[in-house]
Every structure is written in C-alpha cells, then in structure tokens.
Design a binder for these strands. Structure first.
Length: 1067
RNA sequence: GGGCGUAUAGCUCAGAUGGUUAGAGUGCUACAUUGACAUUGUAGAGGUCCCAGGUUCAAUUCCUGGUACGCCCACCA
C-alpha cells in the first residue's frame, strides 16, 4: 500500500492552523481529567502544572507574550506526551490602575470627559466594555499561538470566584493583623488622584533650582532645598551631629516667621545629613519627604501637611493657601529675595519622581491608607514574618530560579521590602471589603456562599404542568439530563447540600452527591410554593383562564396558594437559619422555580415586583450568592470606595485559579505548581508577592521553579513600543509565517534571562525550516510502501547508513529530553534542527534514494518520532503531518519517543556507526575537490581511494560514494597503490582520495595552493612542538592532553608530508 | 551612589569545571536546478573571542581593573 494523498508542495500554515487548533480544543484533551478518562494518562500519574501569567487586558498581546506562551507550551506539551497529568491554566489580569488609565485617556480623547463627569457606575460600564473587548482579542491571540491551555478553567483576576478569594484573603490578613490601616506618607499622583506603590513610581532626570536661604533673620543659619514651598511645613532642621558649625544648636527650639507663616523648628542631629551638600543643614518637612518622615518618626516631630491631594497649598498657610505648588514656590522665592534672605540659586540636575502611568510629578503626602505588613511575625508561619518566610523558601532552595542570578535580585529586593500600601483611589478593581456605617467600621469575617440550583426535570415539568406540593419523581429524561451536567457541581468544594423535602429535589441532591459525598440537609423552608388551585394544571390553561395572574404575579391572590411575599418571608427565614447554623460554608441549595426566583430577588435587595420576571434560573444552571457575616442586606452600609492594588489579586494567582478558598479537588491535585515562567522585569512586582501571599494562605510555596525569560527587542536592540512604531505584531507574523515559525524564532537563539533581538529575517528562516520538515514528510510519505513500513525492522538487514541514522536518532532523543528538562530550549531546538536538516534530509534521505535495502520502516519510524520530538516546539505543522499519516489519533497525546528502541536496534545491528562518518567525509572531500578545481557539473570523474584497512568497508559503500552528488563514473578502491602525477588529492582519516585530472589543472596554481596549506600545517605543528618541548607542560598537563597533542602533531606532519610528495609529483 | 548583565564572523546569537584548526543561523561569493523542497542543493570566504594587567605549563574561558551598552534598586534634602 502506498500513500495515496499528494501533499501540497509548500506548507502554507494558514490553511491548517485554525482547524488543527479547533480539533485539539474540541477533543477536550487540554484538560487533564479528560486525558485520564480517555486512558491517555494514569489516574494517579504525577501532575505537572503551570499557571499562565495573566496578560493585562489593557492591550493586545506583544512578542514578550509570544515567548512566554512558546516556552510554557513546550513544557506542557512535553510533559503531557510523557504521561503526566498536565494542567496549564489560562486567564487575564484586570490590571486595575493601568486599565482605568487607558479607558480614562480614551474617554478624554473621544468625548473630552473625565471619569468624574460620568460618575462611578457609568464609567465602570465603559471600563467593562473595554475589558470584554480586549479580553476576547487576547484569548483569541493565545489560541492562535497554539497554546494548549485548559480553557475549561479560564480565570480572570476580577471574576466572581477571584473576588471571593480576594475578599477572603483580605479578611484573613486583617484578622491576623497583617493588613492594617495607617496614616502614612504615600506616593500621591495628583492627576490619577491615587496613591502609588513604590514600584509604580518612575524617576526622571530634570533640571531644577537649588535654593539656599535663611528662614528668617531670627534664624542663625541657612538651609538649601529645591522645594521652598514645602518649607511651610518644616518642623525641624537637621544637621550632622559631627558638624562643628552647628553642633551647638542641637536641641534648641526656634519659633519664627517664615514668609508670613509661623514655624516651630527644633534643631536635631542626624548622621544621614550630608555635611558637604548645600549648607550642611536640612529643613525637615515630615509631611512631604520620605526621608524627613523617617526623621520625624525617630524624633517624634509634628507633621504639618502643606500640600493637598490636588497639588495645592493647604488652608492656613498665609497667602499661599490654594496656590499650586509651582506658583507657591515662585512666590516664596520672590519674597525671600525681597527680604534679602535668599543667599544662592544654583542650577542642578534633579531626579524627579513621576507617576509611571501618566508621568505627573508625584507628591509624597500623608494619607490614611491600607497596608500589608511584611514584618509582623505570624503564628501560622512559625513566628516568621511574610518577608522572612519568603526569603527562607528561596534560601532553602524550595523555590529555585533560572537563571540563578535572579535569586540574588530576589533576596536583595525582599530584604529591603517595606510595608506594602494596597489601597488605590481608583474605581476599577477589587473594592476593599470594608464597610462603614457612621463611625462603625466592619470587615466581614465570614463568607457564606450559597449556590442555588433547581431540581432536575420531572414528567410534569416536561409536560408544562404546574407542580407545587405534588411529589412527582424525576423522570428518565430528567435524570439523564442531570447526569450530563454533573461537571457543573463537581470539584467546586461544597461543604454541604441543603435541599427541599420534595422527592424531585431530594433525588437531584442524591445524584449530584454521588460525585460530592457531602452531608445533605433537608429543609422544609425550601419546598416549592403552594400553588393552591393552580396545582396540577397546565401552564397553557392557566394563561388562558387567569390572564390577570400574568399581569401581576406578585399581588394576584391565587386561591389557597402562597403569595410571593409569603415566599420571601420563607427565604429570609431560611437565610437566618443558614447564617445561624452553617455560616462560612459553601452550600449547594437545591430548590424549585418559584422559590429560586424569590431567593434571587431577596439577595439582590430587590423590592420592585415588576422585576420578578427578570429572575429566572434555567434547569442545570447555578447562581451564586455571598452572605458576609450575618448581613445579606447591606443597604445600610457604605463600602469603602477604594480599590486594591492589582498585584494583590494577581499575587494569589497560583491558588485562586485552583478554586481557593473553596476546598477544591484542583487545589489538592495541582498545588503547588511546578513552574512559573515569566519576564524578569516582574520578578519583584509579581513573583515576590505570589510567594508571600501563597505562604500566607496555603502555608506552602506557589511553585518549585521560576524561569525568567528576557525581553524581545527590535533588530537594533531597542525596546518595542507603540510610540516608537518599531513593534512587530505577533499576529501579523502568524498570518505571514505561521505560529510555528514564530515560536521557533522566539525560542531558538535565546537564553534564559537574556534579551533577544528579533528581525523578520530570522522568522522567515524558521518558516523555511517548517517547510523543510513538511517536504521531508511529503517525500517520505510518497516514496515508501506502507505495508513494508509496517513490518518490524530487522537489525540484521540494516546497512551502515541505517545504523548511523538510528544511532543519531537515539542520541537526539536523549539530548532533547535532557535539554528540555533543564530548560535549555534553544539548545534542544538547535540539535533537532541540525538532525532534521543536516543528518536526515541531507544524508539519510538522499542515501535512501538509491541504497536498495528496505528503508521504509526506518524512514516511517524516524519520521513519526521526529514529529513527536518537534511537536512541543511546532505543534501545528507536526500535527498537520500526523493527521495525514493517521487521522484517527492525535499527535498531541502520543507518547514521547524513547531512545532505548533505537539503542536496541543499533546494538543488534552491530554496526560501527562511526564508519558512516568516514564515508560522509570522503564524499564531502570529493565534492570539495570538484568545487575547488572547478570541474563542470556535467563532467564525470574517476576517483581512486587508497583506503588501507577500510578498503573492504568502503567497497561495500561504493554506491553511496558514487551517487551522492559526487558524479563519479569510475570508482577504484584499493588498499594502496601508485599515485598518478596529475591529480587532485585529499586525505580523510587515513584514506587517500585521488582524482586524476590530466590536463585539467594549472600546475603553478596548484603548487602554490599546496604550499600555502603546508605553511599552515607547519605553523600548527610548530605550536604543538613548542608545547611538547616545554618541560613545565609535560610535568603539569594531564596525560590525556599530552597524548592528544602528540596525535595532532603526527596528523599535521603526516598531511604536510603527503602534500609535499604530491607537489613534487606535479609536472 | 549600590547591584546585576552583556561585549565572540557583516548581522543575530551559541560555546567550553582552562587544552577545539572557536561554532550555528542569517547575510555574502561561486556553481547548480523539471521528480520532496528555489521557502532548494553543493562548496567557499569571513574571527586580535572589547581593552589592559594577573593567575597558570596553557586564558576567548578564571581573577583584578578599565571602556561601551543595557537593566534593576536607592537617593538626590
């Protein structure tokens, strides 16, 4: 049987990628549970988990994301093919402040409005619209890259489950005293109207004036500053205690008038003060300088706030109040000059703090904010603080860094870490779970989650009959339908089920509980509405008979029936009972149509009866509600309007994506994860926080390995950015060259932690390679006989070339496995490429064209295993080819190749595979002679080999030597013999190659060529000779090196000797 | 100011616990071309391994110092 499909000549990625991805995704095999169910991996197989660092939804993906996806997908596919229960979790990051800023800028540009013009609710609508947009683009882009992510577990840092997790984290940290509210100096951006954490502050070199002046004539000496306006809030003057000029003043108190504002200044000594800078005396402004604030804390100084949140001077500052900072500065300088207090003005370069989002100058100012303490000792961390615990796990190598130099950076950063300000005055993000009522502050301790669902279908439901108290059991269809939907309830970490007493609900509960195995509580309050006279009648009939009922379901009194008001009382009673008896649990509530919709109304604080019809929960769906402490009605309370720093929620990513705080199966199975792969620029921002937060919440590490990739720069080594217009859009690349080519170009030729430059030429080169692989497959598939190829390989019939390629393949498999496991992705890729192109295509496939042993089985085996090896790197082209070979299976879940299969064959074939290298070298040497002597391609040549011991071996390989682009018509292989005078000669590993050339060569030129080569050899020989003549060398160098040097010397001299003779023979 | 990284072919980058005639891809040059592939084949040219010292029998590799570029952190009152 031959392969009867003709593949297209060139691999056009666009024709295949989307449909291949669809096939993978539809198979469900990105999900490890599906793999287990299909027997692809063992139920108790080791797990391998990576969480995808969630891209910010501020913008579409860039090439940095491309690197991240490529590397992670390589690992995931590799481990999946090796039988691990492999999980890769997708998601996106809401990036609170960044996203809000993007939308604000857009709003300003398009509608000339600020967020305050719109108001919180309207503005957030805009943000969400933007989020949905970019989010879907990003998720599409990730698919386009070929990422084998388990989409059934997709998460968003701001979705319901993550909100719950964040709330729980905040509450736990608050209870432990890790989170606290404090009046502290913070970085304030007057434009964003928000605090910024230290790492959200950028620095910019600016020119500034450095003023030296006296506060007043009453003050004994001068100070220097770049910010005279802040001096209105000075409460001390600091000098170096060693400074002889000022020592005597330390401890004294001065009350004076500074430009119309009264200051009370204490003179303090502080060794931090630089005696040489300015006058050596420093005005201390605790409210607006970090260093001054520290001094104020040490010396218990008063804090006077001068600048407000708008960047203007506070009230009570004489005639400066209300002025902007810059205007106030000018006024003060003018006034000082007028009163002859200004001594000096100097131009200096100043490093200005600016907002990393909007470049506005930062005002440090005191403000009431929420903080995470990194120094508080915690019982749950065995008395260590977050900082200490996070340092500890790195030092103990529980978390390892690749490359390891980032370990140092991590430790340095952690050791200098200060408390983390987590509140941001922005609207988009996780609102702080803090509520106020008057002076009361409430941080809820308990979070009871009620997941509502309806019972499965009964016969009456199917027929549209109103069913209240009548105890109709589930029918077969209903049971079947429910069983198909059980995955909705599975692995959610429910603590218990509370269920209506009616049979249909109890049956539903029992079926669901077969998966969950939790207690079931029967609750009378959850039974269906008493429908009175409606009971047992068809809905269609009722609609006809009681049209008024459908006008106003709430108020219409059905005879003998409960009203919706009655139901809402029942719901409230139920809620009270739950809070009392089952608070802080995750509860599955199984009830009925009318009850469930009433429940939803109550939980949403809805009183408008007209909205009843908005509340409907279809069969097989769930609605989730939270009760915080004992309050399901929060209308009296006002929630804090601030949002959390975005890193708070992304710091929880490794466990929040697995379902924490619910006790899910995912958490048990997949945490801690195996590795985190991300860019080195966020090691401090993100990696460190993940480690701290995971230690706090889980008391374990988030991941075992951290792999840090470098940045992708443009071909000139510049950062790619939109404003520079030098960015390469990964998705232009994919449509032009294919996702495989892009992945290769990002992975091969770059090493961990180092930036790489990328140009389109490089990508094109890898596109060429995908095409090469395609054509290798195309040739093999069209030339082999499938019946023969399916026969077992008989080692005894293997030729020298067969043994050689099998040996090479074995080596390749071993190396590739090792390199991937050691994160040497580039090296693994290079070796695979070298094998594919240089060994397989250029030699073995060429040999197979005329060597008449049965190579079909070997070619097919190597092709299939090569596709497997390449699959993690280039999933699309390899799967496409695989589908051509066998469309009933999927390469993605094939077993990764095993080198032992090849080793066994080679061993049994008993071939000296190194001998094939000799043949190769001889062929190359002959080609070389043809090129060097410019022998026309059409011209056939005679070649004589003086082969010594290898004569017999080479005779057996003579077909290969004659046919591999050497164009030989006569090949004579002898042990030794005479050399013709006019001939081109070369030697390879002791075999002399003689090509008689008769009149073809220019003797003078040839002699010249030979003598140049002899010179070269003599130089080499001389070097070694000197070395060998050196006693110190002989004494100190290892014996192996000395032997090697001797061998080299002999070879050089040998070749030189031979060339000399050859030259003499030329006439 | 402190710390880290990088410097190897025209370009992009590998490399070795110190001993190689220092590698790959791309680019360049020459030749070839209907039978898997011009997204190809064959061959070739191309390197003071940034500089200066040191250690060593031996340094492109290790150490010290310098230069250039990049990054991180701190701070500039």
């Amino acid at each position: 049987m031959t392969f009867n499909k003709e593949l297209p000549k060139a691999y056009n990625s666009q024709d295949y990628e989307d449909q291949i991805y669809q096939k993978w995704e539809e198979s469900g095999l990105f999900n490890p549970e599906v793999c287990v169910a299909q027997g692809i991996c063992q139920k108790n197989a080791e797990t391998y988990t990576i969480v995808l660092p969630p891209p910010n939804i501020t913008d579409k993906l860039h090439l940095g994301h491309g690197v991240m996806i490529a590397i992670e997908d390589i690992l995931i596919r590799y481990y999946r093919m090796n039988g691990y229960r492999t999980l890769w979790i997708p998601g996106t990051d809401h990036a609170a402040i960044a996203t809000q800023n993007v939308v604000e800028k857009k709003l300003l540009k398009e509608e000339n409005k600020t967020r305050h013009d719109l108001g919180r609710e309207k503005f957030l609508e805009k943000v969400w619209e933007f989020v949905r947009n970019t989010q879907s683009t990003i998720l599409q882009q990730i698919r386009k890259s070929g990422a084998s992510l388990d989409w059934s577990r997709e998460a968003f840092t701001l979705d319901d489950q993550r909100q719950k997790a964040v709330r729980r984290m905040f509450v736990e940290m608050y209870q432990e005293g890790v989170i606290y509210q404090g009046y502290r100096l913070v970085n304030w951006c007057p434009r964003c109207q928000s605090t910024l954490s230290d790492d959200e502050v950028d620095h910019q070199e600016t020119s500034a004036k450095f003023y030296t002046f006296q506060y007043s004539k009453d003050f004994p000496f001068a100070i220097s500053t770049t910010r005279p306006e802040t001096k209105l809030g000075d409460t001390a003057v600091a000098v170096n205690p060693k400074d002889k000029r000022y020592q005597k003043y330390i401890g004294q108190q001065f009350d004076l008038d500074f430009c119309g504002v009264t200051l009370h200044l204490k003179i303090i000594g502080d060794p931090q003060v630089d005696m040489k800078l300015g006058t050596g005396a420093l005005g201390v402004t605790p409210a607006h300088s970090m260093i001054d604030y520290e001094m104020a804390m040490k010396n218990k100084l008063e804090i006077v706030k001068v600048i407000n949140e708008e960047g203007r001077i506070e009230d009570g500052m004489g005639n400066f109040s209300g002025l902007s900072v810059l205007v106030a500065r000018q006024r003060i300088v003018d006034q000082l000059r007028d009163s002859e207090l200004l001594i000096n003005e100097e131009d200096i370069n100043n490093n200005l703090s600016i907002c990393y989002r909007c470049d506005t100058a930062i005002e440090p100012l005191p403000s009431k904010q929420w903080f995470v303490s990194v120094d508080k000792k915690l019982k749950r961390l065995n008395g260590k603080s977050l900082k200490e615990a996070a340092i500890d796990v790195a030092k103990k190598q529980k978390v390892k860094f690749t490359p390891d130099r980032f370990y140092k950076r991590y430790i340095d950063w952690m050791e200098n870490l200060h408390d983390w300000c987590i509140s941001r005055q922005i609207w988009f993000g996780h609102q702080l779970p803090v509520w106020y009522k008057g002076d009361e502050v409430w941080v809820p301790k308990k979070d009871t989650e009620l997941v509502l669902t309806r019972h499965a279908l009964t016969d009456w439901n199917q027929k549209g009959i109103i069913q209240g108290k009548t105890d109709v059991p589930l029918d077969e269809l209903g049971i079947e339908d429910l069983k198909s939907k059980l995955n909705i309830f599975k692995e959610q970490g429910f603590d218990l089920i509370i269920c209506s007493p009616l049979m249909r609900a109890r049956q539903t509960a029992e079926i669901i509980n077969e998966e969950l195995g939790v207690p079931i509580i029967i609750e009378d309050l959850l039974k269906e509405r008493n429908y009175g006279v409606f009971e047992g009648r068809k809905v269609a009939d009722i609609k006809k008979a009681f049209p008024e009922y459908y006008q106003d379901k709430i108020n219409y009194k059905v005879e003998q029936a409960e009203t919706y008001q009655d139901l809402s009382v029942r719901v409230k009673n139920f809620l009270d009972k739950v809070i009392k008896e089952h608070s802080d649990k995750k509860i599955l509530v199984i009830s009925h149509h009318a009850m469930v919709r009433t429940f939803q109304m109550v939980m949403n604080g809805e009183t408008d009866n007209q909205k009843l019809s908005d509340y409907k929960l279809p069969f097989g769906e769930v609605a989730s509600y939270h009760i915080l402490d004992d309050k399901y009605d929060l209308s009296d309370w006002q929630q804090d309007t601030d949002s959390l720093d975005t890193w708070f929620s992304s710091g929880m990513w490794t466990f929040s994506t697995l379902g924490w705080p619910d006790k899910t199966a995912d958490l048990k199975n997949y945490h801690p994860t195996q590795m985190l792969e991300t860019g080195y620029e966020i090691i401090t921002l993100w990696v460190s926080r993940m480690i701290m937060m995971t230690l706090f919440a889980m008391k374990e590490i988030p991941f075992e390995d951290v792999y840090l990739h470098g940045m992708v720069l443009d071909k000139d080594g510049k950062k790619m950015s939109k404003s520079k217009g030098n960015g390469i859009d990964p998705f232009d690349i994919i449509s032009k060259y294919g996702a495989d080519a892009m992945r290769l170009s990002l992975v091969i030729g770059s090493t961990p932690g180092n930036d790489t430059r990328l140009s389109e030429d490089k990508i094109a080169a890898f596109r060429n390679f995908t095409n090469k692989l395609w054509n290798i497959a195309r040739y093999i598939l069209s030339s082999i006989d499938f019946d023969k190829a399916s026969e077992e390989i008989d080692p005894k019939s293997c030729s020298l070339s067969d043994g050689w390629i099998l040996d090479k393949m074995s080596e390749l498999i071993t190396n590739t496995r090792k390199n991937i496991e050691e994160y040497k992705f580039s090296l693994a890729g290079e070796q695979m490429r070298d094998f594919t192109w240089n060994d397989l295509a250029d030699w073995y496939v060429e040999v197979s064209k005329f060597e008449k042993t049965n190579k079909d089985a070997i070619l097919l085996m190597i092709l299939k295993d090569l596709l497997k090896l390449w699959h993690p790197y280039m999933p699309f082209v390899t799967e496409t080819i695989w589908q051509e070979i066998d469309s009933n299976s999927m390469l993605m879940v094939e077993q990764y190749p095993d080198s032992k299969v090849y080793d066994k064959l080679v061993k049994k074939a008993k071939l000296q595979t190194a001998d094939f290298d000799l043949v190769k070298n001889i062929i190359t040497a002959i080609r070389n002679i043809r090129a060097e002597y410019q022998i026309k391609p059409a011209q056939k040549i005679k070649v004589i080999l003086h082969a010594g011991k290898k004569a017999e071996l080479l005779k057996a390989q003579s077909e290969i030597i004659k046919n591999l682009f050497t164009r030989i018509d006569i090949l004579e292989i002898e042990v030794s013999g005479d050399k013709p005078g006019q001939a081109a000669m070369a030697a390879v590993q002791g075999v002399e190659i003689i090509v008689p050339l008769a009149e073809l060569i220019d003797i003078a030129k040839e002699k010249d060529r030979i003598s140049k080569r002899i010179d070269e050899l003599q130089k080499l020989a001389k070097g070694i000779d000197a070395k060998l003549g050196n006693d110190a060398f002989k004494k100190n160098a290892p014996a192996a090196i000395i032997t090697k040097e001797n061998e080299k010397l002999a070879a050089y001299l040998d070749e030189a000797e031979r060339l000399k003779k050859q030259s003499e023979n030329l006439k």
